[in-house]
């Protein structure tokens, strides 16, 4: 061990993170971005029979749905693949044979996954915003022309204002980007959970299935808790609900997309609350992962 050795080194973590990004990019995981672009463009023009407001709403719903699927795939599958792939390639032994603490290795891997997921979501959001902006302009022109035709040129300003308000409520707004942030936070929590599972899992498949189950339970944690905590729940049902609540994160806390899609403003305090909850989960699960990985036989 040299004097230069540091127990915790941000530079070392950064190096590991960037190499993880390279590793994941080589796995062609980001090919989903190209699929996303096709989905968004198709969604923008796929519903000509709907009214203008609904066309924009559908575009946003499909785009955010695709972003969520991308984030979940990266968070679960990519994270689950990392450790087994490093073992298979013998990269893990090369890294840990050097004075690299296992904590740094895990943090570097997690940071790499989060960087890739964040970059992917930013690209997707830029594409989504651009298509939405173009489509909004098109449907506004079409609607104005249609209203003018209906009123034969003499359009009451009130009628025009009413229609335009509903269309612009579904158009491009700054608050839309908070939907992407909420998806990123959810993905980050799931990635840290998947990393935790992969530190003790015996196979990649086990990690993927377990992380997926935890994700589903996490979305329904509140529902399960309410169901089992009703007055008529038995002792066993109550105990089961508490166990679920302790084991799973409440992923429904990051479901701000629905509010953002309908054009609702999200306050800075609400964003801070979501970031705070995500930070608690990520720090907690990563700390547990570090303990489990510390003595793991490789």
């Amino acid at each position: 061990m040299t004097d230069a050795y540091q127990r915790f080194s941000p530079a070392r973590i950064w190096t590991l993170a960037t190499s993880t990004v390279t590793q994941l990019v080589r796995m062609k995981i980001v090919a989903f971005l190209a699929v996303f672009c096709v989905i968004v463009v198709a969604a923008a023009f796929a519903f000509p029979g709907l009214d203008a407001e609904q066309q924009l709403k559908q575009l946003k719903s499909v785009s955010f749905g695709a972003q969520l699927v991308f984030a979940l795939i990266i968070a679960i599958v990519a994270t689950a693949l990392l450790l087994p792939k490093d073992v298979e390639d013998r990269t893990l032994y090369t890294i840990l044979a050097k004075p690299v603490p296992r904590v740094d290795y895990l943090l570097g891997k997690l940071l790499g996954v989060l960087m890739l997921m964040g970059a992917g979501l930013i690209v997707m959001q830029i594409v989504c915003s651009a298509v939405l902006w173009i489509r909004e302009g098109m449907v506004v022109s079409e609607t104005i022309a249609s209203i003018k035709e209906r009123y034969k040129g003499d359009v009451p300003p009130e009628a025009m204002a009413s229609v335009m308000t509903n269309i612009h409520a579904q158009g491009l707004a700054w608050s839309l980007h908070l939907g992407t942030l909420a998806i990123f936070l959810k993905g980050a929590v799931i990635a840290s959970l998947a990393l935790l599972i992969s530190t003790f899992a015996s196979s990649t498949l086990f990690t993927v299935i377990s992380a997926f189950c935890m994700t589903v339970l996490g979305h329904g944690e509140g529902l399960l808790r309410e169901y089992f905590m009703r007055g008529d729940a038995t002792l066993w049902q109550s105990a089961f609900s508490i166990a679920i609540a302790i084991i799973c994160p409440d992923l429904s806390l990051f479901e701000a997309v629905d509010a953002v899609v309908i054009g609702k403003a999200v306050s800075a305090t609400s964003v801070l609350y979501m970031v705070w909850a995500a930070a608690l989960y990520i720090i907690g699960y990563t700390a547990v992962a570090c303990f489990l990985f510390k003595d793991k036989e490789l």
Partner: peptide, 15 residues
């Protein structure tokens, strides 16, 4: 967090 976000109508109502 749930109470705050629900009060602000950021989260969809629980079914």
């Amino acid at each position: 967090v749930y109470q705050h976000l629900s009060a602000e109508e950021v989260l969809p109502p629980r079914m």
